[in-house]
Amino acid sequence: MANIACFVETYNFLDKEEAEALERFQEAAESLGHSFEFITKRSLRRIPLYDALFIRATTDPSYTAYIASKIAWENGLRVLDNPHSIQVCGNKIHMYKLLQEAEVPFIPTIYLTKGDMHQKTIEDVFEKFGRPLVLKAPYTSFSKYVEKTRSESGFRQICRRFFRRSEVIVVQKFMPTSFDWRVGVLDSEVLYVCKYKIPSGRWKHGTKLRGSNRIVWGNTQTLLREEAPQALKERGISACKAIGDGLFGVDLKEIDGEFIVVEVNDNPSIYAGEEDRKNPDIYERIIAYLAKY
């Protein structure tokens, strides 16, 4: 029997599908004979008392979740997401560079530093990728800090904002599709496969409404693992292998029958009735992984 801690923040319980998924994790753990307790930033010092740590709060090397992960790792706990996954997936530049070294196809990408902000460089970038193109801050998550622009002035303005937190940023070719594939992978095995639909008239799965801070999300269509294209699953697994071990959600675009990686995310969203719709065993499989110590 394993004592599993689940690191959460209060926002993890705001969305009822996410709260229900957390409940399902707890039920799965208890049905397998393990204990499962939620802990918060107030209880970091108790982490060494557990056998495993499962992080559901948003991960980023700058956030408390990284501290929780690292405390668990240094104390020999089994941990999802481990510090290395957070370090790599939390920074898209690191992630893309590893994909490049492993020769995993991903969206055409270049990196810019503040020193590159000359008119000639900007013109060259538009020449290379066409208009519009996409600018991405390395710390993007949940479709935030990913913007597209057609103009040099828009380009400069977005760069200025993104450079406030990071001294290198990402520029990508704009490749619109009606949905992105999401392949959930645990320990190099496919957990679930979904289509994250792009809301009508938009270009990202999660899009801010004009004049509001509210984000609208496209629908999620889930497939049986067995029914998903084999080439898609293989590409998802090879992308994860380039990053490390653990639980990942790989976003891919299907273009002319080819699957190209958009991003590899650690700490992938798991919402009741969405990612688990066709594959209800994902809770048991994640718990079994955590309890394998």
């Binding site: 090397p61 920074n91 070294e101």
Partner: peptide
């Protein structure tokens, strides 16, 4: 994190170099 010093170490690691300091 995300300063030039960090990105230099990251680039070196990705290329498989030994680097001081590592990320």
């Amino acid at each position: 994190y995300m300063r030039i010093g960090y990105y230099v170490s990251m680039q070196a690691e990705v290329m498989g170099c030994q680097v001081i300091p590592n990320c």
